[in-house]
Design a protein around this nucleic acid. Sequence first.
DNA 1: CTAAATTATCTCGATTTCAAAGTTATTATA
DNA 2: TATAATAACTTTGAAATCGAGATAATTTAG
Lengths: 146, 146
Amino acid sequence: MENDAIAKSLKLYIVLSRAYKAINEHVNKVIQASGLNPTEFAVLELLYHKGDQPMQQIGGKILLASGSITYVVDKLEQKGLLIRVACPSDRRVTYAQITDEGKKFIQDIFPEHAAQIDRLMSSLTDSEKTEAIDLLKKLGLPAGKF
Amino acid sequence: MENDAIAKSLKLYIVLSRAYKAINEHVNKVIQASGLNPTEFAVLELLYHKGDQPMQQIGGKILLASGSITYVVDKLEQKGLLIRVACPSDRRVTYAQITDEGKKFIQDIFPEHAAQIDRLMSSLTDSEKTEAIDLLKKLGLPAGKF
DNA sequence: CTAAATTATCTCGATTTCAAAGTTATTATA
DNA sequence: TATAATAACTTTGAAATCGAGATAATTTAG
């Protein structure tokens, strides 16, 4: 029945939402204990792992409106964790660049962050995680969707 | 290596987040086109499918703070989609109850909502969906986690 | 029966996020 | 060049959410 197929998709949506929210709730606790909010952490981690980023691209990568980027970058700059750097070749562009203090901050936090995520994923075996990664990858790129 | 295991958990966290956000972005568009925001929709759908709910339990089921429940229920009440009903046996308790107008609203929206979710899940085969449901269920109940 | 503890809801203020409009710089067209 | 179109970033104001405290009702202990 086509109805069963739709019901299964709905079920998948529900368990996907639950899993994400359950995991995230705990991940965010660790982050917030560090004094940053989840968005600030995401920006700083992006800069740490991927290098300098133009302001606008930050929004694309962590799904944030342009107005919010300015706000978050302001906060992180005030805390001394990043600085704005003008782009030499295009004066419209400003890069966000992590500072040494910011790097130190991530280095302090990240191991516990990663360990927490690993704990939260421990209900799956190693090979189940591999399966789940493959399945979720397909869901993550809704190509010709509407 | 233990490090590979942690790396795999991190990878799973990333693809889980991406999948959820990608799906949700599109689901929310359909909901918002109906004139409700995602939270309002979640509350109304809960009442439609599960019947009257005490205010407090709404918060538990859709993960919302008590202060927010009052706000959302106010909005839905103003729109005539639900009403507050005093509990006869415990005067501290207020039930939220969907109105006929609210039911009609859900009946109008839900088929498209479900169809959209089904489209967004169409990158998985039926049996892959079953696999994904089983795996995500395990992730969704972080029992003795910290 | 009274006092204390608990429970349900609401109010209030702060935080976060977004959308829309504004500013400034660059690029394309004539 | 001008002029217009585009692009990057900022500002502003509103909406959503939360946390903490307030209010009111109920239950429990003594």
